[in-house]
């Protein structure tokens, strides 16, 4: 087997994958993980100011579409990624859990910003959930108040790594 590329990283990765006749041999699980990790369909789920950074992320200047993550869906039935972008109050918590439950498997949750990660500046309030991990299983936490679009992109790429690594290990999610 011979792989021709200038990139040493790509060289090392491809050399383990390519068989004779340039055929890539893999498992269905890894193939699905590769597709899922490169094509998240996020739910349009802005709760507060972080949502504006999320919108900027999808717009032309930052262009989330470069990574294949730009298909924000207004319906949870079409989405597989819940980006909790903003402050979550106890009043809003039941509807958010309901949205999460309406999303089909496989699904992931990103806690975007200080509020979603741990309550943020409102951590002492009686009405604010002290981090969405109190009510939802969070995969990636993004710090910042609010995080810049680059940080959200880094979070989604981190989630991609997580999705693909989990399937390589053979574990769940």
């Amino acid at each position: 087997m011979e792989v021709t590329t200038e990139n040493p990283v790509a060289q090392s990765r491809l050399s383990g994958l390519l068989g004779p006749e340039n055929v890539i041999v893999t498992t269905v699980e890894q193939l699905f993980a590769w597709a899922q990790g490169h094509s998240f369909w996020p739910l349009t789920s802005g709760l507060a100011c972080c949502a504006l950074e999320m919108m900027a992320c999808g717009a032309g200047r930052f262009d989330l579409a470069r990574f294949g993550y730009e298909v924000f869906r207004p319906s949870p039935r079409h989405a597989d990624l819940l980006i909790v972008a903003g402050t979550l109050t106890w009043k809003m918590a039941p509807p958010l859990v309901r949205l999460y439950e309406q999303m089909p498997e496989s699904k992931w949750v990103i806690a975007m910003g200080s509020c979603a990660s741990g309550g943020g500046p409102f951590v002492d309030s009686y009405s604010v959930v002290q981090g969405v991990d109190k009510i939802l299983p969070v995969d990636v936490y993004i710090p910042g108040c609010p995080p810049r679009p680059e940080a959200l992109m880094h979070g989604m790429l981190t989630l991609k790594e997580k999705v693909m690594a989990a399937k390589r290990r053979g574990g769940k999610k």
Partner: peptide, 28 residues
């Protein structure tokens, strides 16, 4: 209107209500 559907369990603007602080919500 502002409280969750089952209420807060307390009345925040009453003078005898004390904020629990950042560890106080653990049991909620």
């Amino acid at each position: 209107l502002l409280a969750p559907e089952d209420g807060f369990g307390f009345f925040p603007l009453r003078k005898n209500y004390k904020l629990p602080g950042r560890s106080g919500q653990a049991g909620r």
